[in-house]
Amino acid sequence: MTTVPGMGLVHGMGLTLRRFFAPKATIMWPEQNADVAPRFRGRLQLLYDEYGTLKCETCFQCAQACPIECIDMGGVDTRGRFHVHWGPPETYGERREESAMRRAGRPVADAAFTRFDPMDVTPVTAIAEAHDFEPKDLLPMLEDIQAAYGYLPVAALKHLSRQTGAWYAFVYGAASSFKHLRFEPPTMPAAAPAGEGLRSAEAGYVSALGAALSGKAPA
């Protein structure tokens, strides 16, 4: 409070008038982008490594961890297979119910996957029944399925997910993390990782790096 009544008001008006002519703080997006620090980790995008390959390993752990199931993954996985669909985005509404039912332990039909080749999944049902539909016995069940089919067909995994109530991401994640489980028939060669042909520069880079680290040219 100033001694002269009203002077505080005049000072304030003076300040706003000065700010009226001052340079503005607005960042004129989209013409101009904010200056984002390199360490900033709030970017909503998938990152690529120096060879232009997607860094995401499609392990589905983010989708599993997402509490409101808003993370959607779809398309081709890193090894060139097609079936890594957690669910199409247009079925969010259905999936909300679906996931609620799954959590309640009830089997849920997956409309997104009906177009895949029909195959006899009775062995899967039998295996699941033998393990009492217990999602905790996922590994033994997967091993049994591989024993029955020779490999892990996608439809079987889907069916297992439906039977046990475990998320497909969970089943797929478990299946993909063990070396002895395979997704292709043993007769078929394993699919090459995505971006395999794109890494022409990698050898040179690795050799240069090795040379830089060890001080001599690699063998």
């Binding site: 409070m1 009544p5 505080g8 008001l9 000072h11 304030g12």
Partner: peptide, 14 residues
């Protein structure tokens, strides 16, 4: 100090 000058001396605010 400049920012608080807008309010601290303002009779209405005080």
């Amino acid at each position: 100090e400049a920012n608080i000058g807008l309010l601290n001396e303002n009779e209405i605010f005080v």
